[in-house]
Design a protein around this nucleic acid. Structure first.
Lengths: 336, 336
DNA sequence: TTGAAAGCGATACCAC
DNA sequence: GTGGTATCGCTTTCAA
């Protein structure tokens, strides 16, 4: 294996000089820089990550923290897509990723603390946004860089927040259904706690209000089990079957569709359906679903880049990032 | 940060002794072992990974190599599930993972070579099995440990192979359809090259033969685009519409279902459908699909464990691992 | 603008 | 059984 000393010897300079060239240090003549770069290329030199990490006391590793049932987390295409985006961003700069899931905030906090000591993580991507988030509070207090995928609830200037404009997205999706002549539209959701759900709810209600539709009693809260969902829907539809439904997450939506199938409700003939977070689960559903593409992989890529930027330059200005959304209409809202 | 020297000082021993205790070295008295372990606990000592990697010239990192379009690879639930299994196995031993996808074997080979130098990967998980696999040949030649997810095509004793019994699984799935009275069953597949497809094909044909059914002309080869699939199926069904179809991969199957929907072929009323690789895509399809659960996450876990075992003990006997499969019947094959 | 040398934290060889 | 110490590859002062 070729080391920094080999390069130095061949170039007739000291290892420290080579090290400076690697870092494009100002104060090294262009001549030597070029000479040494050439030799590094020739010898196909790659710096040893462990050695560098050791002396810099960093791990070149970031952690991605999810909050949910482990099983669900890894099956939900949204998380996978974001993860892949993060992977991409990390590869560009040679970072590694640790990804963990816990169910409660307490457990997450433990994990975060242990991660900080145990593996020397350089920063965190927190995959959820909530008011009174203990995890972000803790990270702020210890001063470790982190970015949050979600909304900046209380204008936290210690971190970068990556989000879509979920209010507008939900407004547009709802408007699409209203434009189809739907008057009775309901929302299906499984966890009210997250900011993303609140935003989507707001967009939904705003759209109803602007179209002078009533927004009372149009929220259906469900669990995560298929049978449970089916029964809840069945009961909710008992008095009056809505003309259209919007689910706040694509993964949940797949279960809703399976439930509708069991209830013998046909899409789009009996009911229009639409959801958020486009993925194969919605693209290749039967029928393919109208969704809001929130560009999950891009969220991940931006989150990764932002975090790495923060790690390398902790004092840089922390500006939040809002990614565009796009309503994709498919057959689930196309009644002949 | 507490280091090995701090422990040594507090215990009144040399750093080397502490190091030996960490490795549970035989030749250290139980008394000192216990004493030092206590102190390590008290001081909440964690070995520095970078330092250890540096001196051991290892990276504590394994690579997972996929062969397909990047986009597809990360959307296919099978790959994600296997990956999660690998993650779990790696976490147990503190290993990190690099995952990459390339389209051609040439590109993969380049990536592998570069990975070996660039990041000092300790071993590989090769996510495909083929006859004449250049990647496994190369890895064998350089002597780096690797495991293959797939079938041991030519009794390669230099690596561990993790696989299901795909022949039997396909046989059982086919038999299930035959038991439903289906006589005209077709297979849909997108890539014949992989061993897994060959095995499933054999199981399928064996089942037909044992039931005295004709197996000619029952293979439908499709591409990966939805429109393409729809057109191919439409044409294939033109002369005679089969009574049942089996797709060799669950991700492809989702597209097939979407195509059937467009062609206005109803499942299970007009046609029974079944596939491999159970996932949310098949569980929550409309209708939920009969599938073979190949326990993808377990494949990943076993692959990870096997690889780590190989890394830590390169000369240990390399025995292949066969995981069980399980046919799960759902509504797609239940005609009222 | 460059060089010499100390040191990051852990391991393993050679002594005793 | 245990201790002393060179070593891994790189960065970074301090000097020149």
């Amino acid at each position: 294996m070729v080391t920094i000393k080999d390069i130095a010897r061949k170039a007739g300079v000291a290892p420290s000089t080579v090290s400076r060239v690697i870092q494009d240090h100002k104060g090294i003549s262009t001549a030597t820089k070029e000479k040494i770069r050439l030799i590094m290329d020739e010898m196909d030199y790659r710096p040893n990550v462990s050695a560098r990490n050791l002396v810099l006391n960093s791990s070149h590793t970031i952690a991605m923290i999810l909050k949910s049932e482990a099983h669900d987390a890894y099956e939900n295409p949204f998380n996978n897509a974001v993860y892949n985006g993060v992977v991409e961003a990390c590869r560009e700069d040679g970072y590694s990723i640790i990804s963990t899931t816990k169910n409660t905030e307490r457990e997450i906090l433990e994990e975060v603390k242990s991660l900080i000591r145990l593996r020397q993580v350089d920063g965190f991507i927190v995959m959820f946004s909530k008011t009174g988030n203990k995890v972000t509070e803790y990270l702020t207090s210890v001063g470790l860089p982190f970015v949050v995928v979600g909304k900046d609830v209380n204008q936290n200037n210690d971190a970068i927040y990556i989000d879509n404009d979920n209010i507008t997205a939900a407004y547009q999706l709802t408007q699409l259904l209203i434009d189809k002549g739907m008057r009775d539209i309901r929302v299906i959701n499984d966890d009210e706690g997250f900011t993303v759900a609140k935003d989507r709810m707001k967009g939904f209600k705003d759209a109803l209000r602007d179209n002078e539709l009533d927004s009372d009693e149009c929220i259906i809260q469900v669990g995560s089990e298929l049978e449970e969902i089916r029964d809840t829907l069945n009961e909710a539809f008992n008095s009056k079957q809505p003309e259209g439904i919007i689910t706040f997450d694509g993964f949940l939506h797949a279960k809703v569709l399976a439930a509708l199938y069991e209830l013998q409700i046909r899409v789009p003939d009996d009911m229009l359906t639409a959801t958020f977070n486009d993925s194969p689960l919605t693209q290749f559903a039967s029928p393919p679903q109208t969704t809001v593409d929130i560009h999950s992989a891009d969220i991940g890529r931006e989150a990764g880049r932002a975090l790495i930027g923060l790690i390398q330059e902790p004092n840089k200005l922390k500006c939040n990032i809002t990614l565009p959304t796009q309503v994709i209409e498919r057959q689930s809202t196309r009644k002949e």
